[in-house]
C-alpha cells in the first residue's frame, strides 16, 4: 500500500498498433491533496496517460497505483477513486443535464435518493441547476464543460483528473472554474491533476508540475522550483515615439534589447533586476506608455524545455 500518494506510476509504457510509442517507461508520483499539472505539446502522451489512469486505454506494461490500489489487481477500487473530465464532450447529448449526472452516479452504485441530492448539490455549485431539465445539446460550450465536472464529482472521488478543462471557454468562465477547482483542492482536499495548454492556468493553480514530451517525462517538480530555473523572462515596453536605436543591443548582465517601431522587448535573465533597463530608458529619453510580460514565466521555461528535448 502507498497510502500517502494519490498516484504512483512506475515504468508505464504504451505502444499503439503500428508500433507507435505513446509513452516510454514513465515514472510519476502525485501526493495526496496536490494540485498537479501535466504539461506537454500536442501528441506528447498526456491524453494516453490520462486514458490509462481512467481505464479508457489499455497499457502495454508498467504499474499504476491510485491511493495504494493496483490498477491491474483492483480496477474497480481505482475507478471509484477517479473522477474524469475528458477533453472532448462524451455524454449523450439528447439526455437531460440532471439525467446525465444521475446516470453516472448509478454506474458508481450510488442509490437514487443519494444521487439526486448530490446531483442537486453539484449542479447548483456549477451554476447548472436552472438547466437541469434541458437536453445537453442545448448547452453552451462552457456549460457542457461544467456539466462534465459535475458528472465527475457526483461519486465524490479522491482524485479528479481534468484534461484541458478550460479549452474553448471564455475568460470569465475560465476564472470561475479556476476558483471552483481551487476550493475543491483547498477546502475539500481533493487531489487534482490537470493537463492544460494555458500555462498561466498551471502557474496560477498548481503546486507541482510534470512536463511530458515524446512520451517521456522530461521535467518534474514544484512550480516554484521550475520557475526559479526559468532562464530568462521577456518584457514588452510600449513606447511613445520610435527609439533612435534599431535592431538588437546588449545591456550588460545578459540583458538583450530588441527595438521595433513603437515597442521595445527586453529579455532579462532570471534574478537580474529591471533597474538597468529602466535606467537605459530614462537616459535615452524614451517615454514608456505601458509595460507587460511577453509570456508567463512557466511558458518561457516550458518552451525552453521542449526545444531542448
Amino acid at each position: 500500500m502507498n497510502g500517502e500518494k494519490a498516484l504512483i506510476i512506475h515504468q508505464l509504457h504504451k505502444t499503439y498498433a503500428g508500433d507507435v510509442i505513446a509513452l516510454k517507461q514513465v515514472d510519476l508520483e502525485v501526493e495526496k491533496g496536490d494540485f498537479f499539472a501535466l504539461l506537454g505539446p500536442n501528441g506528447a502522451g498526456k491524453s494516453t496517460l490520462i486514458g490509462i489512469l481512467s481505464s479508457l486505454v489499455n497499457k502495454t506494461s508498467g504499474q499504476v497505483h491510485v491511493f495504494g490500489h493496483d490498477i491491474d489487481k483492483h480496477p474497480a477500487a481505482v475507478r471509484k477513486m477517479i473522477g474524469l473530465v475528458p477533453q472532448e464532450f462524451n455524454f449523450n447529448v439528447f439526455e437531460s443535464v440532471a439525467n446525465i449526472v444521475m446516470t453516472s452516479a448509478g454506474y458508481h452504485g450510488i442509490k437514487r435518493s443519494v444521487a439526486a441530492e448530490r446531483t442537486e448539490r453539484y449542479l447548483k455549485l456549477l451554476d447548472l441547476w436552472d438547466k437541469r431539465s434541458a437536453a445537453a445539446r442545448t448547452l453552451s460550450g462552457g456549460m457542457k464543460r461544467r456539466l462534465m465536472i459535475a458528472r465527475a464529482l457526483v461519486h465524490e472521488p479522491g482524485l479528479l483528473i481534468l484534461d484541458e478543462p478550460t479549452a474553448g471557454v471564455d475568460i470569465e468562465i475560465r476564472r470561475s472554474m479556476w476558483d471552483f477547482l481551487r476550493k475543491l483542492n483547498e477546502e475539500e482536499g481533493k487531489t487534482i491533476i490537470l493537463t492544460t495548454h494555458y500555462l498561466e492556468e498551471a502557474e496560477s493553480l498548481c503546486r507541482n508540475v510534470a512536463v511530458i514530451n515524446h512520451g517521456e517525462i522530461i521535467e518534474q517538480g514544484s512550480v516554484a522550483r521550475l520557475l526559479s530555473r526559468a532562464m530568462t523572462q521577456t518584457f514588452v515596453f510600449d513606447i511613445e515615439q520610435p527609439a533612435k536605436a534599431t535592431g538588437h543591443q546588449a545591456l550588460g548582465d545578459g540583458i538583450q534589447l530588441k527595438f521595433m517601431d513603437d515597442q521595445l522587448e527586453a529579455e532579462i535573465p532570471t534574478g537580474v533586476p529591471l533597474d538597468s533597463v529602466l535606467d537605459f530608458l530614462r537616459k535615452e529619453n524614451i517615454q514608456v506608455n505601458s509595460m507587460r510580460a511577453k509570456s508567463n514565466r512557466l511558458e518561457t521555461f516550458f518552451l525552453q524545455l521542449v526545444d531542448q528535448d
Partner: peptide, 8 residues
C-alpha cells in the same frame, strides 16, 4: 466512456 471509467 461514462460506463468504462466507472467500477461497473
Amino acid at each position: 466512456e461514462e460506463m468504462l471509467v466507472s467500477p461497473v
